[in-house]
Design a protein around this nucleic acid. Structure first.
Lengths: 241, 241
DNA sequence: CCGTTCTCGTCTGTATACAGTTCGCACGCA
DNA sequence: TGCGTGCGAACTGTATACAGACGAGAACGG
Protein backbone atom coordinates (compact mmCIF):
# COMPACT_ATOMS: atom_id res chain seq x y z
CA UNK A 1 0.00 0.00 0.00
CA UNK A 2 1.23 3.44 -0.89
CA UNK A 3 1.93 6.06 1.71
CA UNK A 4 -0.57 8.42 0.10
CA UNK A 5 -3.43 5.96 0.34
CA UNK A 6 -2.42 5.09 3.85
CA UNK A 7 -2.41 8.75 4.83
CA UNK A 8 -5.78 9.31 3.17
CA UNK A 9 -7.48 6.44 4.97
CA UNK A 10 -5.97 7.26 8.34
CA UNK A 11 -6.78 10.94 8.09
CA UNK A 12 -10.34 10.24 7.00
CA UNK A 13 -10.75 7.97 9.99
CA UNK A 14 -9.36 10.63 12.29
CA UNK A 15 -12.01 13.03 11.05
CA UNK A 16 -14.91 10.58 10.98
CA UNK A 17 -14.11 9.23 14.42
CA UNK A 18 -14.01 12.71 15.85
CA UNK A 19 -10.33 12.72 16.80
CA UNK A 20 -10.28 15.90 14.78
CA UNK A 21 -13.31 17.92 15.74
CA UNK A 22 -15.28 20.22 13.43
CA UNK A 23 -13.72 23.66 13.35
CA UNK A 24 -10.29 22.33 14.25
CA UNK A 25 -7.46 23.66 12.22
CA UNK A 26 -5.63 20.84 10.47
CA UNK A 27 -1.92 21.44 10.09
CA UNK A 28 0.49 19.34 8.13
CA UNK A 29 3.33 18.98 10.59
CA UNK A 30 1.36 17.40 13.43
CA UNK A 31 -0.13 14.98 10.92
CA UNK A 32 3.34 13.93 9.80
CA UNK A 33 3.86 12.50 13.28
CA UNK A 34 0.38 11.08 13.73
CA UNK A 35 0.25 9.41 10.33
CA UNK A 36 3.87 8.40 10.13
CA UNK A 37 4.44 9.73 6.62
CA UNK A 38 6.12 12.80 5.23
CA UNK A 39 4.45 16.05 4.29
CA UNK A 40 4.00 15.18 0.64
CA UNK A 41 1.48 12.35 1.11
CA UNK A 42 -0.17 14.34 3.90
CA UNK A 43 -0.74 17.25 1.54
CA UNK A 44 -2.19 14.91 -1.05
CA UNK A 45 -4.60 13.47 1.48
CA UNK A 46 -5.64 16.97 2.55
CA UNK A 47 -6.40 17.95 -1.02
CA UNK A 48 -8.49 14.84 -1.59
CA UNK A 49 -10.45 15.28 1.60
CA UNK A 50 -11.16 18.87 0.71
CA UNK A 51 -12.49 17.58 -2.57
CA UNK A 52 -14.66 15.09 -0.68
CA UNK A 53 -16.07 17.95 1.35
CA UNK A 54 -14.79 16.87 4.76
CA UNK A 55 -12.27 19.69 4.90
CA UNK A 56 -12.56 23.33 4.04
CA UNK A 57 -9.62 25.30 2.66
CA UNK A 58 -8.81 28.55 4.42
CA UNK A 59 -8.06 31.57 2.25
CA UNK A 60 -4.81 32.03 4.10
CA UNK A 61 -3.82 28.43 3.52
CA UNK A 62 -4.42 25.33 5.56
CA UNK A 63 -7.64 23.53 6.31
CA UNK A 64 -10.33 23.21 8.95
CA UNK A 65 -12.61 20.27 9.61
CA UNK A 66 -16.05 21.08 8.28
CA UNK A 67 -19.15 20.95 10.43
CA UNK A 68 -22.55 19.99 9.08
CA UNK A 69 -25.86 21.28 10.33
CA UNK A 70 -29.32 19.83 9.95
CA UNK A 71 -30.12 21.81 6.80
CA UNK A 72 -26.98 20.74 5.06
CA UNK A 73 -27.67 17.08 5.69
CA UNK A 74 -31.23 17.46 4.48
CA UNK A 75 -29.94 19.10 1.31
CA UNK A 76 -27.40 16.35 0.77
CA UNK A 77 -30.10 13.71 1.12
CA UNK A 78 -32.43 15.59 -1.21
CA UNK A 79 -29.63 15.86 -3.75
CA UNK A 80 -29.00 12.15 -3.56
CA UNK A 81 -32.70 11.57 -4.09
CA UNK A 82 -32.68 13.73 -7.20
CA UNK A 83 -29.66 11.94 -8.62
CA UNK A 84 -30.94 8.47 -7.85
CA UNK A 85 -34.28 9.49 -9.27
CA UNK A 86 -32.48 10.43 -12.44
CA UNK A 87 -30.68 7.11 -12.41
CA UNK A 88 -34.02 5.31 -12.15
CA UNK A 89 -35.53 7.38 -14.95
CA UNK A 90 -32.57 6.86 -17.27
CA UNK A 91 -32.55 3.16 -16.43
CA UNK A 92 -36.17 3.04 -17.59
CA UNK A 93 -35.52 5.02 -20.74
CA UNK A 94 -32.35 3.23 -21.72
CA UNK A 95 -33.33 -0.31 -20.87
CA UNK A 96 -32.23 -2.66 -23.60
CA UNK A 97 -32.64 -6.40 -23.26
CA UNK A 98 -34.72 -7.28 -20.26
CA UNK A 99 -31.96 -9.55 -19.05
CA UNK A 100 -30.09 -6.41 -18.11
CA UNK A 101 -32.28 -6.35 -15.04
CA UNK A 102 -31.32 -9.84 -13.90
CA UNK A 103 -28.78 -8.69 -11.35
CA UNK A 104 -31.17 -6.11 -9.90
CA UNK A 105 -33.98 -8.66 -9.73
CA UNK A 106 -31.73 -11.06 -7.87
CA UNK A 107 -30.71 -8.32 -5.49
CA UNK A 108 -34.31 -7.43 -4.74
CA UNK A 109 -35.16 -11.08 -4.13
CA UNK A 110 -32.27 -11.39 -1.68
CA UNK A 111 -33.47 -8.25 0.08
CA UNK A 112 -36.92 -9.78 0.30
CA UNK A 113 -35.45 -12.71 2.15
CA UNK A 114 -33.56 -10.48 4.57
CA UNK A 115 -36.55 -8.26 5.34
CA UNK A 116 -38.95 -11.21 5.56
CA UNK A 117 -40.37 -12.43 8.87
CA UNK A 118 -37.81 -15.21 9.24
CA UNK A 119 -34.84 -12.87 9.13
CA UNK A 120 -32.02 -13.76 11.51
CA UNK A 121 -30.48 -11.39 14.01
CA UNK A 122 -27.59 -10.58 11.71
CA UNK A 123 -30.02 -9.56 9.00
CA UNK A 124 -29.30 -5.92 9.51
CA UNK A 125 -25.76 -5.81 8.18
CA UNK A 126 -26.86 -8.07 5.35
CA UNK A 127 -29.57 -5.55 4.54
CA UNK A 128 -27.10 -2.66 4.49
CA UNK A 129 -24.77 -4.50 2.18
CA UNK A 130 -27.55 -5.58 -0.21
CA UNK A 131 -29.03 -2.10 -0.09
CA UNK A 132 -25.77 -0.61 -1.25
CA UNK A 133 -25.62 -3.20 -4.00
CA UNK A 134 -29.12 -2.27 -5.14
CA UNK A 135 -28.21 1.39 -5.40
CA UNK A 136 -25.01 0.67 -7.26
CA UNK A 137 -26.75 -1.61 -9.74
CA UNK A 138 -29.38 1.04 -10.32
CA UNK A 139 -26.67 3.57 -11.05
CA UNK A 140 -25.07 1.20 -13.52
CA UNK A 141 -28.33 0.76 -15.39
CA UNK A 142 -28.48 4.49 -16.06
CA UNK A 143 -25.44 4.12 -18.32
CA UNK A 144 -24.31 7.67 -17.70
CA UNK A 145 -20.73 8.33 -16.67
CA UNK A 146 -21.64 11.91 -15.81
CA UNK A 147 -24.33 10.75 -13.43
CA UNK A 148 -21.96 8.21 -11.95
CA UNK A 149 -19.43 10.91 -11.22
CA UNK A 150 -22.05 13.17 -9.71
CA UNK A 151 -23.53 10.51 -7.45
CA UNK A 152 -20.14 9.30 -6.32
CA UNK A 153 -19.26 12.85 -5.45
CA UNK A 154 -22.54 13.51 -3.68
CA UNK A 155 -22.31 10.36 -1.58
CA UNK A 156 -18.70 10.98 -0.61
CA UNK A 157 -20.16 12.77 2.39
CA UNK A 158 -20.61 9.84 4.72
CA UNK A 159 -24.09 10.74 5.93
CA UNK A 160 -25.33 11.14 2.36
CA UNK A 161 -24.74 7.49 1.50
CA UNK A 162 -27.73 5.27 0.79
CA UNK A 163 -27.36 3.35 4.02
CA UNK A 164 -26.33 6.20 6.26
CA UNK A 165 -29.39 6.55 8.45
CA UNK A 166 -30.30 2.93 8.91
CA UNK A 167 -28.77 3.07 12.36
CA UNK A 168 -29.66 1.21 15.42
CA UNK A 169 -32.93 0.50 13.77
CA UNK A 170 -32.99 -2.90 15.33
CA UNK A 171 -33.52 -1.07 18.61
CA UNK A 172 -36.53 0.85 17.47
CA UNK A 173 -40.07 -0.51 17.27
CA UNK A 174 -40.64 1.17 13.93
CA UNK A 175 -37.41 -0.27 12.67
CA UNK A 176 -38.90 -3.22 10.85
CA UNK A 177 -41.64 -1.06 9.41
CA UNK A 178 -39.06 1.26 7.90
CA UNK A 179 -37.26 -1.65 6.31
CA UNK A 180 -40.50 -3.01 4.93
CA UNK A 181 -41.37 0.33 3.38
CA UNK A 182 -37.90 0.77 1.96
CA UNK A 183 -37.91 -2.70 0.48
CA UNK A 184 -41.34 -2.13 -1.03
CA UNK A 185 -39.87 0.92 -2.73
CA UNK A 186 -36.99 -1.15 -4.06
CA UNK A 187 -39.47 -3.61 -5.50
CA UNK A 188 -41.62 -0.87 -6.98
CA UNK A 189 -38.67 0.93 -8.54
CA UNK A 190 -37.65 -2.30 -10.23
CA UNK A 191 -41.20 -2.79 -11.49
CA UNK A 192 -41.32 0.74 -12.88
CA UNK A 193 -38.05 0.22 -14.72
CA UNK A 194 -39.28 -3.07 -16.13
CA UNK A 195 -42.34 -1.29 -17.47
CA UNK A 196 -40.25 1.61 -18.75
CA UNK A 197 -42.22 4.00 -16.55
CA UNK A 198 -39.51 6.63 -16.26
CA UNK A 199 -41.39 9.33 -14.38
CA UNK A 200 -42.74 6.81 -11.89
CA UNK A 201 -39.32 5.33 -11.28
CA UNK A 202 -37.89 8.79 -10.77
CA UNK A 203 -40.52 9.79 -8.25
CA UNK A 204 -40.19 6.56 -6.33
CA UNK A 205 -36.42 6.80 -6.08
CA UNK A 206 -36.69 10.37 -4.85
CA UNK A 207 -39.14 9.39 -2.19
CA UNK A 208 -36.98 6.44 -1.30
CA UNK A 209 -34.15 8.78 -0.40
CA UNK A 210 -36.48 10.80 1.79
CA UNK A 211 -36.73 7.82 4.11
CA UNK A 212 -33.23 8.80 5.18
CA UNK A 213 -34.54 12.23 6.02
CA UNK A 214 -37.24 10.72 8.19
CA UNK A 215 -34.64 8.73 10.03
CA UNK A 216 -32.58 11.87 10.44
CA UNK A 217 -35.56 13.53 12.08
CA UNK A 218 -35.85 10.60 14.43
CA UNK A 219 -32.22 11.03 15.37
CA UNK A 220 -32.87 14.67 16.02
CA UNK A 221 -35.07 13.83 18.96
CA UNK A 222 -32.77 11.09 20.18
CA UNK A 223 -29.18 12.07 19.69
CA UNK A 224 -27.89 8.73 20.86
CA UNK A 225 -29.18 7.23 17.64
CA UNK A 226 -26.66 9.29 15.73
CA UNK A 227 -23.70 7.47 17.18
CA UNK A 228 -24.19 4.59 14.79
CA UNK A 229 -23.95 6.89 11.79
CA UNK A 230 -20.59 7.22 10.07
CA UNK A 231 -19.28 10.73 10.44
CA UNK A 232 -21.58 11.49 13.34
CA UNK A 233 -18.79 13.54 14.85
CA UNK A 234 -19.21 16.10 12.07
CA UNK A 235 -22.87 16.65 12.69
CA UNK A 236 -24.13 19.59 14.70
CA UNK A 237 -27.89 19.24 14.84
CA UNK A 238 -28.30 21.97 17.38
CA UNK A 239 -26.12 25.04 17.55
CA UNK A 240 -23.47 23.91 19.99
CA UNK A 241 -20.67 25.96 21.45
CA UNK B 1 -0.19 34.79 -8.00
CA UNK B 2 0.89 31.46 -6.63
CA UNK B 3 2.81 28.95 -8.70
CA UNK B 4 0.14 26.35 -8.15
CA UNK B 5 -2.64 28.49 -9.54
CA UNK B 6 -0.43 29.54 -12.41
CA UNK B 7 0.33 25.91 -13.22
CA UNK B 8 -3.34 24.97 -12.97
CA UNK B 9 -4.50 27.69 -15.36
CA UNK B 10 -1.73 27.09 -17.86
CA UNK B 11 -2.19 23.35 -17.85
CA UNK B 12 -5.94 23.66 -18.25
CA UNK B 13 -5.38 25.94 -21.22
CA UNK B 14 -2.95 23.47 -22.75
CA UNK B 15 -5.62 20.79 -22.58
CA UNK B 16 -8.53 22.94 -23.68
CA UNK B 17 -6.59 24.42 -26.58
CA UNK B 18 -5.60 20.99 -27.80
CA UNK B 19 -1.88 21.36 -27.24
CA UNK B 20 -2.29 18.17 -25.29
CA UNK B 21 -4.51 15.86 -27.29
CA UNK B 22 -6.97 13.35 -25.87
CA UNK B 23 -5.25 10.07 -25.12
CA UNK B 24 -1.88 11.76 -24.67
CA UNK B 25 0.06 10.69 -21.66
CA UNK B 26 0.75 13.65 -19.41
CA UNK B 27 4.07 13.42 -17.60
CA UNK B 28 5.31 15.73 -14.94
CA UNK B 29 8.84 16.41 -16.10
CA UNK B 30 7.97 17.83 -19.52
CA UNK B 31 5.40 20.04 -17.83
CA UNK B 32 8.04 21.42 -15.50
CA UNK B 33 9.73 22.94 -18.53
CA UNK B 34 6.55 24.03 -20.32
CA UNK B 35 4.96 25.62 -17.28
CA UNK B 36 8.11 26.98 -15.70
CA UNK B 37 7.38 25.67 -12.23
CA UNK B 38 8.69 22.76 -10.23
CA UNK B 39 7.13 19.34 -9.92
CA UNK B 40 5.22 20.09 -6.75
CA UNK B 41 2.81 22.66 -8.22
CA UNK B 42 2.57 20.55 -11.37
CA UNK B 43 1.43 17.56 -9.35
CA UNK B 44 -1.13 19.69 -7.58
CA UNK B 45 -2.52 20.92 -10.87
CA UNK B 46 -2.70 17.37 -12.19
CA UNK B 47 -4.68 16.23 -9.17
CA UNK B 48 -7.12 19.11 -9.53
CA UNK B 49 -7.63 18.54 -13.22
CA UNK B 50 -8.26 14.87 -12.60
CA UNK B 51 -10.88 15.97 -10.11
CA UNK B 52 -12.39 18.26 -12.74
CA UNK B 53 -12.61 15.33 -15.10
CA UNK B 54 -10.22 16.59 -17.77
CA UNK B 55 -7.58 14.03 -16.86
CA UNK B 56 -7.81 10.36 -16.10
CA UNK B 57 -5.46 8.67 -13.66
CA UNK B 58 -3.69 5.57 -14.87
CA UNK B 59 -3.51 2.60 -12.48
CA UNK B 60 0.24 2.52 -12.90
CA UNK B 61 0.53 6.19 -12.11
CA UNK B 62 0.45 9.23 -14.32
CA UNK B 63 -2.40 10.69 -16.30
CA UNK B 64 -3.89 10.79 -19.76
CA UNK B 65 -6.02 13.50 -21.33
CA UNK B 66 -9.60 12.34 -21.40
CA UNK B 67 -11.61 12.21 -24.61
CA UNK B 68 -15.34 12.82 -24.71
CA UNK B 69 -17.76 11.23 -27.13
CA UNK B 70 -21.21 12.35 -28.16
CA UNK B 71 -22.98 10.26 -25.54
CA UNK B 72 -20.88 11.60 -22.73
CA UNK B 73 -21.61 15.19 -23.66
CA UNK B 74 -25.31 14.45 -23.91
CA UNK B 75 -25.20 12.88 -20.46
CA UNK B 76 -23.35 15.84 -19.02
CA UNK B 77 -25.94 18.22 -20.45
CA UNK B 78 -28.79 16.08 -19.17
CA UNK B 79 -27.20 16.05 -15.75
CA UNK B 80 -26.90 19.81 -15.75
CA UNK B 81 -30.55 20.00 -16.72
CA UNK B 82 -31.53 17.80 -13.80
CA UNK B 83 -29.49 19.84 -11.34
CA UNK B 84 -30.70 23.19 -12.64
CA UNK B 85 -34.21 21.82 -12.60
CA UNK B 86 -33.71 20.99 -8.96
CA UNK B 87 -32.37 24.48 -8.35
CA UNK B 88 -35.48 25.95 -9.93
CA UNK B 89 -37.77 23.70 -7.91
CA UNK B 90 -36.01 24.45 -4.64
CA UNK B 91 -36.02 28.15 -5.46
CA UNK B 92 -39.79 27.91 -5.81
CA UNK B 93 -40.26 25.94 -2.63
CA UNK B 94 -37.89 28.00 -0.51
CA UNK B 95 -38.79 31.44 -1.75
CA UNK B 96 -39.09 33.84 1.15
CA UNK B 97 -39.66 37.53 0.59
CA UNK B 98 -40.47 38.26 -3.01
CA UNK B 99 -37.69 40.80 -3.08
CA UNK B 100 -35.31 37.88 -3.15
CA UNK B 101 -36.13 37.65 -6.83
CA UNK B 102 -35.12 41.25 -7.57
CA UNK B 103 -31.69 40.38 -8.91
CA UNK B 104 -33.07 37.63 -11.11
CA UNK B 105 -35.82 39.90 -12.42
CA UNK B 106 -33.26 42.54 -13.31
CA UNK B 107 -31.13 39.95 -15.05
CA UNK B 108 -34.07 38.74 -17.13
CA UNK B 109 -34.93 42.30 -18.10
CA UNK B 110 -31.37 42.93 -19.22
CA UNK B 111 -31.48 39.74 -21.24
CA UNK B 112 -34.71 40.94 -22.83
CA UNK B 113 -32.89 44.03 -24.02
CA UNK B 114 -30.02 42.03 -25.46
CA UNK B 115 -32.26 39.57 -27.28
CA UNK B 116 -34.64 42.25 -28.50
CA UNK B 117 -34.74 43.39 -32.13
CA UNK B 118 -32.51 46.40 -31.52
CA UNK B 119 -29.62 44.32 -30.23
CA UNK B 120 -26.22 45.54 -31.33
CA UNK B 121 -23.60 43.39 -32.98
CA UNK B 122 -21.76 42.80 -29.72
CA UNK B 123 -24.94 41.55 -28.12
CA UNK B 124 -23.77 37.99 -28.26
CA UNK B 125 -21.03 38.17 -25.65
CA UNK B 126 -23.35 40.26 -23.51
CA UNK B 127 -25.91 37.50 -23.78
CA UNK B 128 -23.40 34.85 -22.72
CA UNK B 129 -22.35 36.86 -19.70
CA UNK B 130 -25.92 37.62 -18.63
CA UNK B 131 -26.91 34.03 -19.23
CA UNK B 132 -24.23 32.84 -16.85
CA UNK B 133 -25.41 35.39 -14.33
CA UNK B 134 -28.97 34.09 -14.62
CA UNK B 135 -27.91 30.55 -13.95
CA UNK B 136 -25.76 31.53 -11.00
CA UNK B 137 -28.55 33.58 -9.45
CA UNK B 138 -30.92 30.68 -9.89
CA UNK B 139 -28.48 28.41 -8.11
CA UNK B 140 -28.21 30.86 -5.26
CA UNK B 141 -31.97 30.96 -4.80
CA UNK B 142 -32.02 27.21 -4.19
CA UNK B 143 -30.15 27.82 -0.92
CA UNK B 144 -28.54 24.43 -0.98
CA UNK B 145 -24.80 24.13 -0.54
CA UNK B 146 -24.95 20.48 -1.60
CA UNK B 147 -26.61 21.44 -4.87
CA UNK B 148 -24.10 24.22 -5.35
CA UNK B 149 -21.24 21.80 -4.98
CA UNK B 150 -22.83 19.32 -7.36
CA UNK B 151 -23.57 21.86 -10.05
CA UNK B 152 -20.13 23.43 -9.81
CA UNK B 153 -18.65 19.98 -10.19
CA UNK B 154 -20.91 19.04 -13.08
CA UNK B 155 -20.18 22.24 -14.99
CA UNK B 156 -16.44 21.99 -14.48
CA UNK B 157 -16.45 20.12 -17.76
CA UNK B 158 -16.22 23.04 -20.14
CA UNK B 159 -18.85 21.83 -22.59
CA UNK B 160 -21.34 21.25 -19.80
CA UNK B 161 -21.47 24.92 -18.83
CA UNK B 162 -24.70 26.83 -19.39
CA UNK B 163 -23.29 28.84 -22.28
CA UNK B 164 -21.19 26.15 -23.87
CA UNK B 165 -23.11 25.54 -27.06
CA UNK B 166 -24.10 29.04 -27.95
CA UNK B 167 -21.35 29.10 -30.52
CA UNK B 168 -21.10 30.93 -33.72
CA UNK B 169 -24.82 31.36 -33.50
CA UNK B 170 -24.60 34.74 -35.07
CA UNK B 171 -23.64 32.91 -38.24
CA UNK B 172 -26.66 30.68 -38.30
CA UNK B 173 -30.09 31.71 -39.54
CA UNK B 174 -31.76 29.92 -36.64
CA UNK B 175 -29.42 31.67 -34.27
CA UNK B 176 -31.77 34.42 -33.20
CA UNK B 177 -34.64 31.98 -32.91
CA UNK B 178 -32.65 29.89 -30.45
CA UNK B 179 -31.88 32.93 -28.34
CA UNK B 180 -35.52 33.94 -28.35
CA UNK B 181 -36.62 30.52 -27.21
CA UNK B 182 -33.94 30.37 -24.53
CA UNK B 183 -34.86 33.79 -23.24
CA UNK B 184 -38.53 32.87 -23.18
CA UNK B 185 -37.57 29.94 -20.98
CA UNK B 186 -35.65 32.26 -18.68
CA UNK B 187 -38.71 34.44 -18.36
CA UNK B 188 -41.00 31.49 -17.79
CA UNK B 189 -38.74 29.94 -15.17
CA UNK B 190 -38.78 33.23 -13.28
CA UNK B 191 -42.56 33.35 -13.52
CA UNK B 192 -42.88 29.81 -12.21
CA UNK B 193 -40.66 30.58 -9.24
CA UNK B 194 -42.64 33.73 -8.50
CA UNK B 195 -45.81 31.63 -8.43
CA UNK B 196 -44.12 28.92 -6.39
CA UNK B 197 -44.85 26.39 -9.13
CA UNK B 198 -42.00 24.04 -8.29
CA UNK B 199 -42.75 21.22 -10.71
CA UNK B 200 -43.23 23.65 -13.57
CA UNK B 201 -40.00 25.46 -12.80
CA UNK B 202 -38.16 22.16 -12.66
CA UNK B 203 -39.49 20.96 -15.97
CA UNK B 204 -38.74 24.24 -17.67
CA UNK B 205 -35.18 24.36 -16.43
CA UNK B 206 -34.60 20.80 -17.61
CA UNK B 207 -35.91 21.61 -21.03
CA UNK B 208 -33.85 24.76 -21.06
CA UNK B 209 -30.68 22.70 -20.74
CA UNK B 210 -31.79 20.53 -23.62
CA UNK B 211 -31.39 23.51 -25.92
CA UNK B 212 -27.69 22.88 -25.53
CA UNK B 213 -28.24 19.35 -26.74
CA UNK B 214 -30.02 20.63 -29.82
CA UNK B 215 -27.09 22.89 -30.56
CA UNK B 216 -24.75 19.98 -30.05
CA UNK B 217 -26.69 18.06 -32.68
CA UNK B 218 -26.31 21.00 -35.02
CA UNK B 219 -22.58 20.92 -34.47
CA UNK B 220 -22.57 17.23 -35.25
CA UNK B 221 -23.51 17.93 -38.82
CA UNK B 222 -21.19 20.89 -39.11
CA UNK B 223 -17.99 20.26 -37.23
CA UNK B 224 -16.68 23.75 -37.88
CA UNK B 225 -19.28 25.04 -35.44
CA UNK B 226 -17.51 23.21 -32.66
CA UNK B 227 -14.41 25.30 -32.89
CA UNK B 228 -16.04 28.08 -30.93
CA UNK B 229 -16.79 25.78 -28.03
CA UNK B 230 -14.35 25.73 -25.12
CA UNK B 231 -12.70 22.34 -24.88
CA UNK B 232 -13.61 21.44 -28.43
CA UNK B 233 -10.26 19.70 -28.71
CA UNK B 234 -11.48 17.07 -26.25
CA UNK B 235 -14.55 16.18 -28.25
CA UNK B 236 -14.62 13.16 -30.53
CA UNK B 237 -18.05 13.16 -32.09
CA UNK B 238 -17.20 10.43 -34.52
CA UNK B 239 -14.88 7.56 -33.77
CA UNK B 240 -11.61 8.94 -34.96
CA UNK B 241 -8.25 7.19 -35.19
C1' DC C 1 -4.83 50.64 31.12
C1' DC C 2 -5.53 50.08 26.35
C1' DG C 3 -3.94 50.25 21.75
C1' DT C 4 -0.28 49.75 18.49
C1' DT C 5 3.71 47.87 16.69
C1' DC C 6 7.52 44.92 16.43
C1' DT C 7 9.36 40.45 16.71
C1' DC C 8 9.62 35.66 16.95
C1' DG C 9 7.79 31.25 15.95
C1' DT C 10 5.11 28.37 13.11
C1' DC C 11 3.10 27.17 9.03
C1' DT C 12 2.50 26.74 4.12
C1' DG C 13 4.35 26.98 -0.61
C1' DT C 14 8.01 25.54 -3.40
C1' DA C 15 12.03 23.28 -5.08
C1' DT C 16 14.85 19.40 -5.37
C1' DA C 17 17.20 15.03 -4.25
C1' DC C 18 16.66 10.07 -3.92
C1' DA C 19 14.70 5.50 -4.49
C1' DG C 20 11.71 2.07 -6.34
C1' DT C 21 9.10 0.71 -10.26
C1' DT C 22 7.50 0.26 -14.70
C1' DC C 23 7.83 0.50 -19.56
C1' DG C 24 10.15 -0.03 -23.79
C1' DC C 25 13.77 -1.54 -26.54
C1' DA C 26 17.24 -4.36 -28.09
C1' DC C 27 19.71 -8.38 -27.93
C1' DG C 28 20.03 -13.27 -27.81
C1' DC C 29 18.20 -17.73 -28.20
C1' DA C 30 15.18 -21.21 -30.04
C1' DT D 1 11.64 -15.14 -37.72
C1' DG D 2 9.37 -15.01 -33.44
C1' DC D 3 9.53 -15.05 -28.63
C1' DG D 4 11.57 -14.41 -24.24
C1' DT D 5 14.72 -12.08 -21.37
C1' DG D 6 17.56 -8.60 -19.61
C1' DC D 7 19.13 -4.01 -19.51
C1' DG D 8 18.39 0.89 -19.39
C1' DA D 9 15.96 5.08 -19.33
C1' DA D 10 12.29 7.64 -17.64
C1' DC D 11 8.80 8.42 -14.54
C1' DT D 12 6.30 8.46 -10.23
C1' DG D 13 6.25 8.32 -5.17
C1' DT D 14 8.42 10.10 -1.23
C1' DA D 15 11.25 12.76 1.79
C1' DT D 16 13.31 16.94 3.07
C1' DA D 17 15.43 21.55 2.85
C1' DC D 18 14.57 26.39 2.26
C1' DA D 19 12.07 30.74 1.90
C1' DG D 20 8.24 33.74 2.42
C1' DA D 21 3.90 34.77 4.81
C1' DC D 22 0.88 34.84 8.45
C1' DG D 23 -0.38 35.09 13.28
C1' DA D 24 0.31 35.25 18.18
C1' DG D 25 2.32 37.41 21.86
C1' DA D 26 5.14 40.69 24.16
C1' DA D 27 6.87 45.17 24.70
C1' DC D 28 6.48 49.89 24.15
C1' DG D 29 4.02 54.19 23.75
C1' DG D 30 -0.02 57.04 24.37
Amino acid sequence: MSQSLDALLKLRDLILNGDLRPGDRVSELPLVERLGVSRTPVRLALVKLEHEGLLEALPSGGYVVKAFGYDEIVDAIELRGVLEGTAARLASERLGRRSELDALRTCVRQLDAVVGPDSGAGGFSAYVSLNQRFHRLLLGLAKSTALERALDHATSLPFASPSAFFFAQSELPRSREMLIVAQDQHRTILEAIENREGARAEGLAREHARLARRNLDLARSDRSLLDGVPGAALIRLRDAV
